[in-house]
């Protein structure tokens, strides 16, 4: 790092690492949900991504390959979910929950040999010249590849959803599959793709956990972050920019309450730990006051099964 970064920068850096897995998982789920599919299995897909990427980096030492493997693991899990819910019309809510049970067990099984294995973490990629700018340099240009990736993902998804034909089709499918079908769009195929994208992002979120956030594998290391990601999609009223805001808000409050404890604020820690959850509710209430935006963005057909001959 250049010189001595200010306290603000240091806190911000901690918030960034805490928020990045949430950004990935929530962005993936957002795309999935905008196509009308509710996949509650984010936690399971994250664990699959975490364990497989860590296994790969342990065996090969090849970080880029390991990120790909983590992504692929998320995709495979999402494919399983897609097959059950899209091809076989199983209940999305229940299948998603079952996917989490399955993923938790499977990752523990695969990870048995990885307990106590160390890895130094994804390398930081400093952007030449820019990373030397005081404050902004360490804040924006001295991260690992996944942090940059999470920042690019948000505008990319926003652009795709709002500015491209593919995004239009995806939203149409999510709002009314019957109408989209009548227009000749292949509803199931669109939903498969959106689901797989969600799986890929969750897999990456998991890979970030085991390769960057806390580079190791321990069972169930996602510790509920998949659920927070699900909540963030709702929080963001299905808008990419708000996912970023929500993830950083949640991460920020979490870190700030730790800082509050560190400087000796006299409130029981359990009550302090409630803050991120309560803040999220309060902000959602404020957001929800703008009813128009909620209605515009919420996918109307979410969670509903579709079959072309219905």
């Amino acid at each position: 790092m250049s010189d001595d970064p200010s306290t603000f920068v240091l806190i911000a850096l901690t918030v960034i690492t805490a928020a990045t897995p949430l950004v990935f998982a929530a962005m993936g789920e957002l795309v999935t949900e905008r196509s009308g599919v509710l996949n509650l299995g984010v936690e399971g897909m994250m664990l699959a991504g975490a364990v497989s990427s860590f296994l790969c980096v342990h065996l090969t030492g090849n970080a880029p390959l390991s990120l790909l493997v983590g992504t692929a693991a998320g995709i495979v899990m999402a494919l399983l979910f897609g097959f059950l819910t899209l091809s076989l019309q199983a209940s999305q809510v229940a299948t998603g929950l079952a996917l989490t049970i399955f993923g938790t067990g499977l990752s523990a099984l695969v990870g048995q040999s990885l307990i106590g294995v160390a890895y130094e973490g994804l390398p930081k990629l400093s952007v030449p010249v820019l990373s030397d700018i005081p404050t902004l340099g360490p804040l924006l240009f001295q991260h690992d590849v996944l942090v940059y990736g999470s920042w690019l993902l948000v505008p990319a998804v926003a652009y795709f959803l709002n500015r491209t034909r593919g995004g239009l089709v995806l939203r149409a499918v999510g709002d009314s599959h019957d109408a989209a079908h009548a227009l000749g769009y292949r509803v199931i195929r669109v939903r498969y793709l959106a689901t797989l994208f969600g799986g890929a992002c969750s897999g990456l979120a998991g890979a970030y956990l085991s390769m960057a956030y806390a580079p190791m594998w321990v069972e169930n290391m996602s510790a509920g972050r998949g659920w927070i990601a699900l909540a963030l999609v709702v929080f963001a009223v299905w808008q990419p920019g708000w996912v970023l805001f929500g993830a950083y808000l949640f991460g920020g409050i979490t870190i700030l309450q730790l800082h509050g404890q560190g400087i000796g604020i006299n409130v029981p820690s359990q009550l302090m730990s409630m803050l991120p959850y309560i803040t999220t509710i309060v902000v959602l209430v404020l957001i929800s006051l703008d009813q128009g935006r909620v209605r515009r963005n919420a996918p109307a057909a979410i969670g509903q099964a579709f079959h072309p001959t219905t």
Binding site: I11, T17, A18, A214, I255, Q270
Partner: peptide
């Protein structure tokens, strides 16, 4: 000694966050 309670026995991410917070302080 500065104490931070994380309200969990194990959550590697949160433990890392607490460590960073303490170092920043």
């Amino acid at each position: 000694v500065k104490v931070i309670w994380v309200n969990t026995w194990y959550d590697p991410g949160k433990e890392a966050d607490a460590a960073k917070t303490l170092i920043d302080q």
